[in-house]
Amino acid sequence: SLDKAELCDSLLTWLQTFQVPSCNSKYDLTSGVAIAHVLHRIDPSWFNETWLGRIKEESGANWRLKVSNLKKILKSMLEYYHDVLGHQVSDEHLPDVNLIGEMGDITELGKLVQLVLGCAVSCEKKQEQIQQIMTLEESVQHVVMTAIQELLSKEPS
């Protein structure tokens, strides 16, 4: 399956196409701020302004605030998968947000961003999202394709 560091690098490149704050490095992503802004772009009715307002922008080096942000993000995403997409996320794709917030764990971060990707290619505005992905470098597109296949295939891999 996918090399998690390569997955993270490619998905960071994809996230940067949204041009949201705090999205310059993998470490930046661990605060959850960029991911929350991307989700708000993907589906502003579900991940709405009120929800976005609960994400602490100044989490910086405070790992407890980061973990708190990441928990809110993961909870809302899983509800989105269930209520909007009608898709059950398998256990192997569930990230440990404590490891992300506290240790900056790349493997768990890759899983979290992989879930964001799944929202993007399945939501109401997926046409726009997929076309944006198709403008990326071919090598990045390949990793993105594999990540989608891995996440959204019926049987756990």
């Binding site: 997409l85 939501c123 997926k126 597109q141």
Partner: peptide, 30 residues
């Protein structure tokens, strides 16, 4: 040139995959 062919094949795989995603009913990711 084999590399050219491989490149073209790669592009085809990607295009087919993403177009298949586009044609899926919204909200049905699997």
């Amino acid at each position: 040139d084999p590399n050219m062919k491989a490149g073209a094949a790669n592009e085809g795989v990607l295009a087919n995959f993403f177009n298949s995603l586009l044609s899926k009913k919204t909200g049905a990711p699997g």
